[in-house]
């Protein structure tokens, strides 16, 4: 089967897709976008989290055919586009590296998308920086085995604060 959809702003088409293939498989193995990770394939870990029409989903649970005609955004689409050397990381990406929220990094792509979503829903909608309980609740579906989550919470807070400062100050934090 053939599946066409938009990924990170580009129209893509995958051919010879098997009926059982997930969106995650098609992204990783057919479209050359291995950033989203497969750690359970059962919707339990969040490593495969992507935006599907603006809503975060576990791409391992989405059949590839369900993405037909829709818009997907993955970790590869979070940074500003441009060539690797010049490209600026998004505030969330930047904060994760800076705060030490990345160890093995396998959970990171999914956490970045889910954090991006949290900041978009809070600071992005004119709201305040999410508190610790909100952060924990929003990231409850994303497992990390390395960090114990403390540095992840630091990173989310840092990214949210910077995004808020940028919004309020009008310029880059």
């Amino acid at each position: 089967m053939r599946v066409s959809f938009e990924v990170n702003g580009h129209e893509v088409t995958a051919d010879n897709v098997w009926p059982g293939e997930s969106l995650l498989y098609v992204l990783r193995e057919r479209l050359g976008l291995p950033g989203s990770k497969n750690a359970c394939e059962q919707g339990e870990c969040g490593s495969c989290t992507v935006y599907l029409d603006g809503v975060t989903v576990c791409s391992c649970l989405v059949a590839a055919g369900q993405a037909q005609g829709r818009a997907v955004r993955t970790v590869e689409g979070l940074a500003e586009s441009g060539d690797l050397a010049e490209r600026r990381l998004s505030p969330v990406q930047e904060a994760f590296v800076e705060a030490g929220a990345v160890q093995c990094g396998f959970c990171t792509p999914g956490l970045l998308v889910q954090t991006d979503d949290l900041i978009e829903r809070t600071v992005g909608q004119g709201g305040g920086v999410p508190d610790e309980a909100e952060i924990r609740e929003h990231l409850a579906g994303n497992l990390c085995r390395c960090t114990g989550y403390e540095k992840i919470i630091d990173a989310v807070r840092l990214a949210a604060e910077r995004t808020a400062a940028q919004r309020d100050g009008g310029g880059p934090a």
């Binding site: 291995p34 497969n38 993955t74 690797l84 590296v97 990345v102």
Partner: peptide, 15 residues
């Protein structure tokens, strides 16, 4: 390796 890990470009064995 932090930047590669947050952009999704870090090549894990499964990639």
């Amino acid at each position: 390796d932090g930047t590669l890990k947050v952009t999704g470009e870090f090549a894990y064995s499964s990639d």
